[in-house]
Amino acid sequence: MKFGVVVFPGSNCDSDTLYVVKEVFNQEAEFLWHKDHDLKNSDCIIFPGGFSYGDYLRSGAIARFSPLIKEVREFALNGGLVLGICNGFQILLELGLLPGAMLRNKNLKFLCQHVNIRIDNTDTPFTLAGNIGQVLSIPIAHFDGNYYIDNNSLKDLHKQNQIVFRYSEQNGNLSKKSNVNGSINSIAGLINKNGNVLGMMPHPERASEAILGSDDGRVIFESIIQYFDKVKKPQPC
């Protein structure tokens, strides 16, 4: 399958993400320049981490006015797979492809560390290779990852099983301590109603090779690839 990694001028995890899908998972992958109007026939679009436009206004706020966004929006509305990692998640929120908003981390500091996240939903193209309750050790690196959503919408998220990852202890329990950035209901990642757009604050591309301290993030890329192989690819009759 083919991945397209969107590059904004201030993206800084674009190369890391491309490296992982290309070199670690041997998939086709290309950069998609934000000023272009070409998705280059990608099967899955990734918004990588970084500081898309310096993020002086709000994280991800300016990125949504980029030319390429028009095509990505259409792609997503037609059921195409879109994954937003960290700043990519913030952009998806600003775009309105996912509900809610990001506030500053509760300790008002940038946080870069490995955290544990629990998979709460495996019925998605991004987690189908994982197990419910499985705990992954994946790094976060953000200033604005304190997820917020109003109460009614939060109920909807639960009702429609849209919460995919939650910050947890190593044993899967939720606690105030494990909820490092103060997100509402410890939400670390969520999916849209249609189940094709996922946003997550942790960086799976930083946890896909054992030499980097953890390869728990592989399950996300493996899921996407499996999903595409089994579900998306036209099957011979």
């Binding site: 995890c13 890391d16 490296y19 981490g49 500091k109 940038f110 870069c112 690196a141 090779e209």
Partner: peptide
């Protein structure tokens, strides 16, 4: 101190 620095970017 160190967790305020992104020490992992560029993998």
């Amino acid at each position: 101190v160190f967790r305020q620095y992104d020490h992992m970017v560029q993998t």
